[in-house]
Write a protein that binds this DNA or RNA. Structure first.
Lengths: 77, 77
DNA sequence: ATGTAGACTGCTGTCGACA
DNA sequence: GTGTCGACAGCAGTCTACA
């Protein structure tokens, strides 16, 4: 599976846990809401600075975000 | 510390462990060598697709790459 | 509330040359 | 082997509007 999809799924997972809407998360992370939507759907190749902003808004650390079997393997391509 | 610097340091750490030159790593990851240099020095905001390529070339997983105290805190800005 | 589309700006990422 | 400097194409990221 594409790295973008893995990241999108994981963001959605934490977002719904917090019961935030995409719009609310976008506002909290100070990122455009249409962009958050496309990132969640694996359509965008997000940069680390904006990824960090999103993950921080999800109230976790980068370490926790990537601490999943989904990010174990090699290249997903 | 800036997230870009943290990532750059970590890449350098694993690269030197493998005794690869920046050029060799760039070749292995199929990324421009000048770009690898600037990423290592925290000057570039790398995207997840190219970060994954680099980390794969370092023979580790994303999970392992971010599994460090450096990536624990909140926003580094 | 989610998702798509279009148009736009600025930066990511490439490449050649050089100290 | 490392790092910088242009110059460049293409895409990341913003914004408005709509179903």
């Amino acid at each position: 599976m594409d790295i973008r999809k893995k990241i999108g799924l994981r963001i959605k997972e934490y977002r719904t846990n917090l019961q935030l809407t995409q719009e609310a998360l976008a506002f909290k992370a100070e990122i455009d809401k249409t962009y958050v939507n496309e990132v969640e759907n694996g359509k965008r190749n997000i940069s680390v600075i904006n990824l960090e902003k999103l993950i921080f808004a999800l109230e976790i650390s980068l370490r926790e975000f990537f601490n999943s079997e989904a990010f174990d393997g090699g290249l997903t391509k």
